[in-house]
Amino acid sequence: MAQQKQYYRRKKVCKFCVERIDTINYKDVKLLSQFVPERAKIMPRRISGVCSPHQRRLNEAIKMARNIALLPFTSE
């Protein structure tokens, strides 16, 4: 048997699955900005823990929001 791990890492969960958020809307800046860190890049799945179907929709929504100046492309 392998040695037991020294540390315990909390398993990440998809926010959208857990909170049952069905529609990821581009107008919902408050929600989207949680996934856009300071540098204004889209947060990768490996950090946020969002599942891939939801990440895909999130991506679309963030890009739409950028188009209409609700979210920045970059931060200066």
């Binding site: 107008k27 950028r66 100046a69 609700l70 979210l71 920045p72 492309f73 970059t74």
Partner: peptide, 16 residues
């Protein structure tokens, strides 16, 4: 407030 400058504008009226 706009997230970035558009034609030197920093603010705008949004209509949906």
């Amino acid at each position: 407030r706009l997230a970035y400058e558009i034609n030197r504008n920093r603010e705008g009226h949004y209509v949906l």
